[in-house]
């Protein structure tokens, strides 16, 4: 069921507020001079990488790895290839925009071929 324009507006507002909050929080919580708890520093270091793990899983959450070609699916092969290309290019060159372009191109090519 999709959203009404009002619901979309609320969603955008909520996301904006959440994002702004994360940007301003450190400056509010630690005005000049106040000490930062070690737990907070720890979270700052580890939460970021963990979130991107979550986001990667999120991107593949609907990928159908099971449905075969006969049944109209593609075993998730384009997605797997796209993933492998992105990882390989990044491992080789360590350039974000390059690996993004390569991975996306690979995905689109394989998807349109199959």
């Amino acid at each position: 069921m999709s959203m009404t324009p009002a619901e979309m507006a609320i969603t955008i507002l909520v996301v904006t507020a959440g994002t702004v909050f994360t940007r301003f929080l450190p400056y509010i919580a630690f005005p000049e001079g106040r000490k930062i708890p070690k737990y907070v520093t720890y979270l700052g270091k580890v939460l970021g990488p963990a979130v991107f793990g979550l986001l990667c899983v999120y991107c593949f959450r609907n990928t159908d790895f099971i449905t075969s070609f006969a049944a109209g699916g593609n075993h998730g092969i384009p997605a797997i290839i796209g993933l492998v290309v992105t990882v390989a290019v990044f491992a080789a060159r360590r350039q974000m925009f390059l690996s993004m372009a390569a991975g996306t191109a690979a995905y689109m090519i394989v998807l349109n071929l199959l």
Binding site: M1, T11, V14, A17, T19, T22, P26, F30, L43, L47
Partner: peptide, 30 residues
């Protein structure tokens, strides 16, 4: 998110999680 059903709590949670790294940036730029 905008194509799915209305779920502002989940959207807020996602924004906070994605934005979590901003907290670290802020600490570094204090």
């Amino acid at each position: 998110i905008l194509l799915s059903s209305f779920n502002p709590v989940s959207a807020l949670g996602t924004a906070l999680m994605i934005g979590a790294r901003h907290i670290f940036y802020g600490i570094s730029m204090l």
